[in-house]
């Protein structure tokens, strides 16, 4: 055995043993300051949506007449709906098409979340018609369904992306509340007792949507960006247009429908 090697080996061994005895400490200290709080982005600040898109949905030619409703089965409806004996499929005023859902269909920043409004949207069944006939709301926003008539109505949502529901409302002035979790447009709502009654809801996960009013006019407030805007009508289908808006910008976007437009299978 060489004289030099023994101390060398011994010291190496000692070093190895000491190093191996590492390991975690066992103090119950306070954990280190944590990382970021909630994952993902913050809720969108609505004051940033300062650009405006306005426009008119025009209708060319003579609007086709709405179907007349056969109401003899329910005397209440026959009496109260006498002023409004047709369906409300096509409503044209001043050359403009009403009840068109206008919304931003793409171009919003991905991952952005928007605050859910707590004010409920109301739909009323009066005089055997749904009021409003077409409206929009956000996901998880409460929807209040009221029956102002003294006859049995039921609200049957023929949803495809949301769970379907069908609630009967036999009592006058009773209110049922519900909400939709997933965005879906259009979401038809029907009454099974009175087949002519129908409404359309547009459910979105962002607040940039509206329904065209009298004269076919609409207004959308959006943040600056490049967007695809869609206009949808229950009979005449949908049309899309692109628009780019800058900060505090005002742009005009006009859609046009005519009798030959057909809705695709929704």
């Amino acid at each position: 055995m060489h004289k030099r090697s023994l101390p060398l080996c011994a010291s190496l061994l000692m070093v190895a043993l000491v190093a191996g005895c590492g390991g975690g400490s066992n103090e119950t200290n306070v954990p280190p300051p944590g990382g970021p709080g909630a994952p993902g982005g913050t809720t969108f600040d609505m004051s940033k949506a300062n650009a405006t898109i306005t426009g008119k949905i025009s209708f060319e030619g003579t609007p086709p007449p709405n179907d007349k409703i056969q109401m003899s089965a329910d005397p209440y409806c026959a009496q109260h709906a006498a002023q409004n004996p047709t369906t409300e499929t096509v409503k044209v005023s001043d050359g403009g098409l009403e009840n068109v859902i206008v919304f931003v269909s793409s171009g919003l920043s991905a991952g952005a979340t928007y605050a859910t409004p707590t004010t409920p949207v109301e739909i009323n069944q009066e005089n055997c018609h749904y009021t409003p006939h077409v409206f929009t709301m956000m996901t998880n926003q409460p929807l209040k369904v009221k029956n102002s008539d003294m006859t049995l109505h039921n609200i049957h949502a023929w949803a495809e992306k949301n769970p379907q529901f069908n609630v009967g409302q036999p009592v006058k002035d009773m209110v049922s509340e519900t909400k939709f979790k997933n965005p879906e447009v259009p979401l038809p709502v029907r009454c099974d007792v009175h087949k002519w009654m129908g409404a359309f809801i547009g459910v979105f996960d962002h607040p940039f949507h509206t329904v065209s009013k009298s004269g076919g006019s609409f207004e959308l407030k959006v943040p600056p960006g490049n967007y695809e805007v869609t206009a949808w009508h229950e009979k005449f289908g949908k049309k899309t247009m692109m628009v780019q808006v800058g900060d505090n910008d005002k742009k005009e976007l006009n859609f046009s429908f005519n009798t030959n437009d057909k809705g695709t299978a929704d």
């Binding site: 609200i155 049957h156 009967g168």
Partner: peptide, 8 residues
């Protein structure tokens, strides 16, 4: 599911 009978 989808029946026309409503839930009362």
């Amino acid at each position: 599911p989808g029946t026309r009978m409503p839930t009362f």
